[in-house]
């Protein structure tokens, strides 16, 4: 039992290191080779965890071999278009100029129902509004609507947009987030001044987000948004 506990901790650490070395990706965004390596790593890791007869080093070596292969393949796919095509395949245009390409759909084994479902997933409920639809290598569908069906932007309706940037959390749970404050090029005093103008104190704030143009959002502890 003790040995299984220790082995599990060791394998957990090595699997985590391996996955971190491979880089951050969500399962759905993975390329085929990344998905295969992730599944294999999880499978390989369980063998020395469950079977105490097996040396842990065999599992660790297998994990790192997979990680090395994955990194080398990802570098090669970055450098060579041909290699990328072989390893990851190519995106396929399913709808072109409003015309469904049935041959392309057959090639990717996609049915009309699949296409409708994927369009709905993209908030497109009327297929006639689609100008282009591309099936990406990770299996997601990228959709471009006809110009007439695209939502109007502020530019289209000639309204001047208010300047805004990415809001960063500057206070969470009553504590300053130093990294965000320095990333915005301000000081804690600047944040405090804003709070004072609203008669609030830091310790009462659940979340405060701020952008570089001074736009902010405040949520007090125990209060509704």
């Amino acid at each position: 039992m003790n040995i299984i506990l220790i082995r599990t901790i060791i394998m957990y650490l090595f699997v985590t290191i391996g996955i971190r070395l491979m880089g951050k990706r969500q399962i759905g965004d993975m390329q085929p080779n990344e998905l295969v390596v992730t599944f294999l790593i999880s499978e390989v890791a369980t063998i020395p965890m469950q079977d105490v007869e097996q040396p842990v080093i065999n599992g660790i070596a297998a994990i790192f071999v997979l990680v090395v292969i994955e990194i080398i393949i990802s570098v090669l796919t970055m450098k060579s278009i041909k290699f990328r095509k072989i390893m990851n395949g190519q995106s396929k245009v399913i709808i072109k100029n409003g015309q469904i390409d049935e041959q392309a759909m057959k090639k990717v084994r996609m049915t009309a129902v699949d296409l409708i479902e994927m369009l709905r997933d993209r908030d497109v409920f009327d297929i006639s509004t689609v100008a282009y639809a591309v099936l990406e290598v990770d299996g997601t569908l990228t959709v471009m609507l006809n110009p007439a069906d695209q939502p109007a932007t502020l530019k289209d309706i000639k309204i001047k947009a208010k300047k805004s940037g990415i809001q960063l959390p500057v206070i969470t749970d009553g504590k300053f987030i130093e990294e965000s404050i320095s990333a915005l090029g301000i000081t804690k005093n600047d944040v405090n001044k804003r709070l004072k103008s609203k008669n609030k104190s830091v310790d009462k704030i659940f979340l405060m987000t701020l952008d570089r143009y001074g736009n902010y959002n405040l949520i007090e502890k125990g209060k509704k948004i």
Binding site: L21, G23, A61, F64, V65, V67, V68, I71, I72, V75
Partner: peptide, 13 residues
């Protein structure tokens, strides 16, 4: 840096 780590790992393996 990942490639360097991969090479180091490969050599170690």
């Amino acid at each position: 840096s990942r490639l360097i780590i991969a090479i180091i790992l490969a050599v170690a393996l």
